[in-house]
Structure formats: structure tokens, C-alpha cells
Design a protein around this nucleic acid. Structure first.
Lengths: 232, 232
DNA sequence: AAGGTGTGTTAAAAATGGTTAAATGAGCAT
DNA sequence: ATGCTCATTTAACCATTTTTAACACACCTT
């Protein structure tokens, strides 16, 4: 296996240097760019396996750069660095395809963990559907998909068949985009206009059920599908 | 036994045609798609028993198509056709769940052998929910289907013929969905409206019998059938 | 800014399943 | 045969799940 190639875009020379050296030390092949524009010039399709982008940079911000990169190589994983812990930005990042984010200040260990987690996820996503444990606890919720039950602090919800199948699909692909057409074919057996609208109705229901757990958000990825994310 | 249904995705019209005709000649029900995208549209869960995918195709390559198919129906066998004999590709293929691969050029006989070998392998694994022992104990219940008896802590129940056949069917397929129409054809010999309603009455009875064993639940899978689950 | 397409939301319609009790019918004993 | 008894089916009614429809809003492109 070759070295994992990482593109770093970070304008703070100090932090940039540290990042670069640390990742090299840990066996990655990393390239540092001092601003967004430089990052845009440096990125070439097939030349990188992962991007770590600062959000606030001169010349070109992280979101814009990410969009450009995704346009070239849609499936490349991206981790954002953000000084703000503002949820708005984080959610926006996930929507445009971020795989994770790290808020400054952070320790190198934390970053490394995220990098490895993201790489593991995206690598095995092509492999197989990760098995879900019988009972899944996230935050204040307990999800027992085996018998269609979702326990919340405010009480238990008995899920209908379709609700349960859809929710399980999202948990099976936590933090990853689930394609509309794949979900439709898997659960409705057929991708058609009306089934798609039916699914939208169920999306709304699931959002309502998850509402009281702040750390879970079912995002829309416009034109692609949906993504259930877990904010850590 | 019905015909084996095969999905073929191959962009070379010449080879595709030959494949299709040959497999039809050999008694398969094969469908040809001229590219990966067409393959994605054509594939529906439960509609195919095997996929034969070319690796290099316009619009959508074989690996991508395979991932989508596996996402929908994880256990379906897939055979890749590849011009390259490159180990990298072959290994990657196996990782994402290939059951076999055939390198071009190949003879029809070779392909047929592989198809039969794969089907034989996957069939026997999918074949049988293992035979039920004479006497089955689950939790506080003992089910002796041989003589229509269900023992519960609160006392024994003598099952009627239909009750017993239905309950056995569910235990035979524990944790798996039993299709309404399959159950009807198996037990009532005929799937009709009134038989279906009759079955619903028996479902209610069985639920009542199982009620005192908390770990067993007979769930309905709306529009499909029923599923007896055992919570561990 | 405008217009097309995709998604959010809500309510009503349609389909499916749950429940109960009465009708049917088959087997058995008288 | 006649009348029990019991399994099974039919029927009627109700409850739930899913789909359809209509309209509002959001997103992308020009």
C-alpha cells in the first residue's frame, strides 16, 4: 500500500508547518498550501486521497475551495478546520460534502484520529454494509431496529415498517450520504416519482422523531440524497 | 424451479449480444445492459439471481455499479469481466464482494462453468434455514410441532392444524420475513382475498399464544408479510 | 432577479391489516 | 340420519400504514 496523500490548506504558517510535519511523521505524504487559491492550483484529480482545509483563509475560503475540489473529484474525503464552533458553518460544511470537521484549537492526536476514522469509513464504504449492533445507543436515544422501537427520554416510539427500514438505512450509513435512488430501490423496490415523494414524507417523520436529540441531524444533500450525521 | 435471472452489463455490443444469447440458450433468463448507468436503472431488488459486470464501461464502471447493487442486495453474487489481468483490480473486486472474475478473452464454456460454480456456492448457503429440531425451546416456551403442542408456563395449548402449520413456518424462518403470498400458497394452497383474511385471523391467535414470552414478537412487514423475531 | 427543478409540509385518500363475532362445514357420537 | 363440537371461513367494522395531492419553500442556473 502506498502512502496516503493529504492536501492541507492552512494560512497560519505556524499551524500549517506543525500539521505538515506531524502528518509526515505519521507516515502520510502531505502537501501544504498557504491559502485557498494555492490549494486550488495544487489540487489535481487522482493526486490526493484526503483534504484538510481551513475555513477562513485569504484569497479563497475553505468552502469555496471544497466545492471546487468536489467538482473535480466528488468522492474525495474532506475534513474542515474551523475556529468557530458555530453550528451553522459546521452544518453547511456537511451539506457540501464534508466528511468531518475539527474545531480549533485541537490537539494533533485528535486530528490524527479523525483522519484515520475518515479514511477507514471511506475505504470500507465500497466494501460492505457495516453490521449494526442489535441495539444502538446514541446520545439520549436507544434504537432497537430489530423490533421497530426507538426509545427517547420523552417516551417510546413504535416505528412503522417503512420508517424503520429507512432509519436503519441511515444508521447503517451514519455520516455518509445515502443516495435517493439507492434508498428507493432498496426499500420501495422501485425508483419512481411517487415513491420518491412518499420517501420525502417519511424523511419529515424521521426528522420529527430525531428532533430531541441535538447531536443527530438528517441533512439533505441536494440532488443526491440524505445524510444522517452525528455531531461529536 | 424457475429460471435463474442474470443481469449482464457489457458495453461491447458484440460480446454483449453473444453473452446474452448464449446464456439464454443455456436456460437462463438474462438481461443485457449496454452500460453501467443502464445497469443501475435496470437492477431491482429480488429481480435477479446473479450479475455479470464488465469492469470498464462508459458512464459508470463495473466497480461503482457493483457497489450500488451490493448496497441494495448485499448477498447477490457478482462475476466481473475484466480485460486487464491486473491483480490490483481483481483484489479490489474481491474486496467489494465479487464472487468470481473472468479475464477477457474467455470462452463461453469457461464463463458457464464459473456461473454454475458461483450459483452452486451461493445457493446452498442461502438455501435452508436449518431444519427445526423435534422440540424447540425458546425462553419459557417449548414448541413441539410434531404433535401440535405449545407449552407455556401458564399451561399447554393444543394448536389446530392451521395454527400449527403457520407457527412452524414462522419458526422455520425465524428473524426473516415470510411473504404473505408464500405462506398462503404453502398452507392454504391458494392466494386469494378470503384466504388472506383468514390468515390474518390466525395471526391474531398466534400473537395471543406468544404474548407471554417477551423475547418473541410476530411483527408485520407492511405490504409484504410477517416476521417472527427473537430478541437476544 | 426569474424560472425550473427539487425538497418540505400537511392533509386527505387509498390500501392494508387487526379484531371480533357470527356463519359455515366437517367429523363424530348418539 | 340428527345433533353436537370444534376448526375454519366469512363478514363487518375499526385502526393503522402508506400513498397521493396540493401548495409552500429552497436551491441552482441563467
Amino acid at each position: 500500500m502506498d502512502k496516503i496523500r493529504i492536501l492541507i490548506a492552512e494560512d497560519d504558517p505556524n499551524l500549517g508547518q506543525i500539521l505538515n510535519e506531524y502528518l509526515n511523521l505519521k507516515g502520510f505524504d502531505s502537501t501544504l498550501c498557504p491559502d485557498g487559491e494555492e490549494g486550488s492550483k495544487t489540487f489535481k484529480p487522482g493526486k490526493f486521497d484526503l483534504c484538510i482545509l481551513d475555513l477562513m483563509m485569504p484569497k479563497k475560503d475553505g468552502f469555496t475551495l471544497a466545492s471546487e475540489i468536489k467538482a473535480i473529484e466528488p468522492k474525495i474525503p474532506i475534513i474542515f478546520l474551523t475556529a468557530k464552533s458555530m453550528k451553522e458553518d459546521i452544518l453547511h460544511g456537511f451539506k457540501i460534502g464534508a466528511d468531518d470537521y475539527v474545531t480549533k484549537p485541537f490537539s494533533m492526536e485528535v486530528l490524527l484520529m479523525r483522519v484515520n476514522a475518515v479514511l477507514k469509513r471511506t475505504k470500507q464504504s465500497a466494501e460492505g454494509p457495516g453490521k449494526l449492533p442489535e441495539e444502538l445507543k446514541i446520545g439520549s436515544l436507544t434504537y432497537q431496529y430489530a423490533d421497530n422501537r426507538l426509545m427517547r427520554p420523552s417516551g417510546e416510539i413504535k416505528l412503522t415498517t417503512k420508517e424503520n427500514e429507512l432509519l436503519k438505512l441511515f444508521f447503517d450509513n451514519l455520516n455518509q450520504t445515502v443516495d435517493r435512488s439507492i434508498a428507493l430501490k432498496k426499500i420501495w423496490k422501485d425508483d419512481s416519482y411517487f415513491n420518491a415523494r412518499s420517501m420525502d414524507v417519511y424523511i419529515a417523520k424521521i426528522r420529527k422523531y430525531l428532533k430531541e436529540e441535538e447531536s443527530l441531524k438528517l441533512l439533505t444533500v441536494h440532488g443526491e440524497g440524505f445524510k444522517l450525521i452525528h455531531l461529536t
